[in-house]
């Protein structure tokens, strides 16, 4: 289908974008890569009066190290996450997740900021951000605030970004010595949204695993931190009994819904199988 009519403005700055939104009385949509917005317009799922293009705003691009954090501009394309050396070193779960996101041509346009702001619960980057304990830099008329990923994802397609606010950047704490990561998902076809997915980060230290961080996705209305599974692994060597304990603990962390494709029990089963695989990959990476 074709999109309904709308007006268009290419914002030169974040302030301009927020002003344009306010002047349209909120009957507007921000666009970055446009690969979620444009299909939704073509399908006539929304019909805003104004599209505000964020892609030319300089403050939203660039990737740099600042005080122990990697700042990744919201406009960073999925494809860049696969090739950027700073992301590979300091935000490795974004690099690991990117090949699972859609298809090559979509990755040339889709942005990290757009993916996080869109907050599809079956999306890869939101889970990677949660597992890396990223913080999201949001601009509003009142100023700039940083929201931890644990508080950012609120519900299906809903985040801590209020209407008219702009996600400017993603801050990821720099990798520490001994840090291991692994990412995987189960999908019916390459490039599809996951049936279930897992992003894991941990530090291997003398006294066993530390700083274990596990984010599961496509298991509910937002990416979910598997807190019980994290506890089950902390301080232990990464061996078969520890992995089994983490898999068992997932029942306390996840409460997947029944859905038309398959029952909740199957999703929990798949999540356990996948967590086992991902932890085994961590092991070999160590």
């Amino acid at each position: 289908m074709k999109s309904p009519k709308f007006d268009y403005v290419r914002a030169g700055s974040v302030a301009d974008a927020m002003t344009a939104y306010a002047e349209a009385d909120g009957d507007a949509v921000f666009v970055s890569g446009g690969h979620s917005v444009v299909p939704s317009l073509a399908l006539r799922l929304q019909a805003p009066a104004l599209m505000i293009d964020l892609s030319a705003i300089e403050a939203l691009s660039g990737i740099d190290l600042r005080d122990g954090w990697l700042r990744i501009g919201a406009m960073t394309r999925h494809a860049q996450a696969m090739t950027d050396p700073l992301i590979a070193t300091h935000a490795p779960l974004f690099a690991a997740a990117a090949p699972f996101v859609a298809h090559p041509a979509i990755r040339n346009r889709g942005t990290l900021g757009g993916s996080l702001a869109h907050a599809d619960p079956a999306s890869e980057f939101p889970a990677a951000a949660l597992a890396m304990r990223a913080e999201l830099e949001i601009a509003s008329a009142q100023g700039i605030r940083r929201v931890p990923a644990d508080d950012f994802f609120v519900d299906i397609y809903e985040t801590a970004i209020e209407p008219g606010e702009v996600l400017q950047a993603i801050h990821v704490p720099c990798a520490v010595a001994g840090q291991m990561v692994a990412f995987d998902e189960i999908a019916r076809r390459r490039g599809d949204y996951a049936m279930v997915g897992a992003a894991v980060q941990a530090v291997s230290a003398g006294e066993g695993l530390q700083d274990v961080s596990i984010a599961m996705f496509s298991v509910g209305n937002r990416p979910v931190r598997a807190a019980s599974a994290q506890v089950a692994l902390t301080g232990r060597a990464l061996d078969a009994p520890a992995i089994a304990a983490a898999q068992a603990a997932l029942a306390d962390d996840l409460d997947p819904p029944d859905d038309p494709q398959f029952p909740a029990s199957m999703r929990l089963h798949l999540a356990r199988v996948l967590l086992g695989r991902v932890l085994a990959k961590l092991e070999t990476a160590a």
Binding site: R10, A105, N108
Partner: peptide, 11 residues
């Protein structure tokens, strides 16, 4: 390569 159906002419 990009999808010409998902890029607006103005973009």
């Amino acid at each position: 390569p990009v999808h010409a159906c998902l890029v607006l002419a103005v973009q």
